[in-house]
Design a protein around this nucleic acid. Structure first.
Lengths: 207, 207
DNA sequence: AAAAAACCTACCCTTTTGGGTAGGTTTTTT
DNA sequence: AAAAAACCTACCCAAAAGGGTAGGTTTTTT
């Protein structure tokens, strides 16, 4: 049986073009085309598709929010975002929302088909630029802030939720020393509370 | 001019196979083959390659550590990890270390060439399974812990480094109310300090 | 050898948090 | 209509954290 595909895209000619390409394959068939998320969500169960081509920039509920809602009903749905935007925030929002893939609209027929095939076989089709962005997001740039080893020890303990007393016990030094280090840490990190220090340490990859 | 490629792989037949494939192309040439990272790092400047095929599981310095060191000397180096392992921790370690791509050893000739091309044009070649893992890592599973809306408000403010006083001001409620909500949050999250609460909220994606 | 940086400790005092009880209103669920 | 949940406020007290000064030793750099 063919894999059912639903297209959600407000550019009608584009969605019809996609549908034509998809319907020419032996593995996939388009069961519905919507120009908005609301309708797609309304007919989720009726359509019974597991694979979605979803535009990001839609009137009303946008693609990211729509992805979340579809995933809530069908956690196993494969949702490929198709968009002109390669804005990083939107990309990561979409991935966090549960999108399986991320393609740009200027894609060729074969790319679309390949993406669908990859998707249903458990993959994550991405355009080259998106893949680079995603991989790049793991590469933490080293921070310019320099903490001494001991300061890192203290901050690490703090980030694990230890009180000053516990930290003192764990590092075999007095609580006063902990406070001393923390004071210096706060100055270096330009913060003035333990939470801010921990948050900043996480953000800047100091530990 | 051809792109210079260095291969670091302790399986000699395999590395020679890779080299043969690469040297048949018009765009790439293998300038050195090493069976360990130490030698590759020693000859970095002499070889002058920008593209690396790097095995993960190497004697001595492993591929992840080697990647870090190469990246320290040549931040723009393209390093493709080639491995039999698809263990998630190793994959993410490699990406964090600065790897541009991640392929499995059972790859076809064309896949290798495609990966190299994609790499030098700023992409991030990944096998299907790896791409899925990477994308999957963004998809935070919803937590079973349920905070009320107000509790989320308070916790979010707290995580931004605000004191109880500031939170009270920002939410237009009294400091006592803040403390009241925090107490309940601590119970729900099974913690007993603000830092732990914030850490747990981050970990469990509660905000 | 001198200087600097990192590390450690002990005070001081103020402010902030944590944890408890006790009461209330509003909104949602049953 | 009753019950439950969420929300708000006020008090109390003890514990923890923030911020300052002042002294010291050890290790590293110059």
């Amino acid at each position: 049986m063919k894999h059912k595909v639903v297209i959600v895209e407000d550019n009608i000619p584009l969605s019809e073009g996609f549908a034509e390409i998809i319907n020419q394959t032996s593995d996939f068939e388009v069961v519905a085309i919507y120009d908005n998320c609301e309708d797609a969500i309304k007919n989720l169960r009726k359509d019974g598709a597991k694979t979605f081509l979803m535009d990001i920039d839609l009137p009303g509920i946008n693609g990211v929010e729509g992805t979340k809602q579809i995933k809530k009903v069908f956690p196993n749905a494969n949702i490929i975002m198709v968009t002109v935007f390669e804005n990083s925030d939107v990309v990561f929002d979409a991935l966090c929302a549960g999108a399986s893939g991320y393609l740009t609209k200027n894609l060729k027929s074969e790319e679309l088909i390949d993406a669908l095939k990859e998707c249903v076989s458990g993959g994550a089709p991405m355009s080259i630029k998106i893949a680079k962005m995603v991989v790049g997001s793991f590469q933490k740039k080293p921070s310019k802030i320099e903490l001494s080893n001991r300061e890192k020890d203290v901050l690490m303990q703090l980030s694990e939720g230890n009180s000053y007393d516990s930290i003192a016990d764990n590092l075999f030094i007095s609580k006063n020393t902990i406070k001393f280090h923390l004071k210096n840490i706060y100055i270096k990190l330009q913060v003035n509370s333990n939470i801010e220090a921990v948050q900043k340490a996480n953000k800047e990859n100091l530990l």
